[in-house]
Each structure stands twice: as C-alpha cells, then as structure tokens.
Amino acid sequence: MRCPYCGGEDTQVKDSRPSEDNTAIRRRRVCVTCGGRFTTFERVQLRELMVVKRSGRRVPLDRDKLARSVAIALRKRPVEPERVEQMVSGIVRQLENLGESEVTAEQIGHLVMEGLKAIDDVAYVRFASVYRNFREAKDFGVFLDELASRGEGETGGRD
C-alpha cells in the first residue's frame, strides 16, 4: 500500500478490524519511510463494474464518488453515517448482483433515489433536483406535487 504522505511503498499494518457494518476490513497502517499513519478499507469486489454515462462514455464505478454524492444530498441532515454506509454498500451490491459488467448512470441514480427516499425526504428532493436536472423553482413544485399525489412524501425519513 502506497503512503498518501510521502508515496513510499513500504507500509505496515498496525491494526485490523471489521468495519461497523461488517462489509469491509478497516486497517490502520504506518509508513516505514516517513512514519505517517493512515487508514485503509478492504472490501469484497464481485466484479469490475463500468458505468455508462449519458454521453456514452464508460468509466469504472467509483464507490467513493457515489458515497460523496449521497453525502452532499444528506449534508446537515440528521442521518447517522452508518446508515449512509449501509445504503451505499447496498447499492453497490445490487449493481454487482445484476450480473452485468456495465450499468447505466440512470440505474445508479434510480437506486440512490430509492435509498434516499427511505432515509430522508429532504435529501431525496435535493438529489432529485440534480438527478432530474431541475432548472427553475417551479420544477421543485412539480416534483413535490408528484410526490404528494403518490403519497411518497409522507413516510420517508421518519422511522
């Protein structure tokens, strides 16, 4: 494992333990060269997934990017980090279980929307505003009206 501080390739594992949700191994490492300490996570990867963007471009699925986009939607919301981690892990598992080597950005967005709807209404609307490319304030109103008419805005995030 390369040291994030000095780039040295000689690091030692000082401590290993399962993550909170038991989907990864958390390892504390120390660099032999500079003495820097850092944490890494080891996860099972069933297959290498490629994301097909709307432009047609193909890029590897970046779990961290997915987690960051969810975190942005949930910024300043009362949601425990463990629930977010479970949601992201669940989305990645669902994508891997599809049996395909390629998934569309639209499929990922749909799964994120479903996950956020179950966790927090405000984050769900925030993510939808980007995912559905809202351009004006009235777009929010139309979306919220759709939610109300389907009864979806009355249960999410209040468990």
Rank of each mutant, 00 (worst) to 15 (best):
V70I: 14
N97H: 10
F140E: 01
C34K: 07
Q94K: 01
G109S: 03
R27P: 05
P60I: 09
E82V: 15
F143Q: 07
L46V: 14
F134N: 11
E146A: 03
V52M: 04
L147H: 05
A24F: 02
E106Q: 08
V70D: 01
V103C: 09
C6P: 08
E100Y: 12
G99D: 04
P60A: 12
F41D: 10
D62S: 06
A67Q: 10
A118W: 01
D120S: 04
L98H: 07
S69W: 00
G90T: 05
F41Y: 12
A148Q: 00
K76P: 12
R83G: 01
A24T: 07
S69Q: 11
M113D: 10
E42K: 12
D120Q: 02
D21P: 07
E114F: 13
S69E: 11
G153L: 15
Y131W: 13
G99R: 09
I72Y: 10
D120H: 01
A67M: 10
D121A: 09
R37W: 05
G109F: 07
A67I: 02
V59R: 13
C34P: 10
F140H: 05
A123F: 11
R58W: 06
P81I: 04
R77C: 00
A148D: 00
V88Q: 09
A123S: 13
A123V: 02
T23V: 08
E152L: 14
D139K: 12
V142A: 07
T11K: 05
R135G: 14
L144R: 06
N22H: 12
R29H: 07
D15M: 11
F140S: 05
G109T: 03
T104R: 02
E102V: 05
A148S: 00
D10Y: 01
G56N: 06
R150H: 15
R28H: 03
F41I: 08
A128L: 06
P4Y: 01
T11V: 09
S69T: 11
T11D: 07
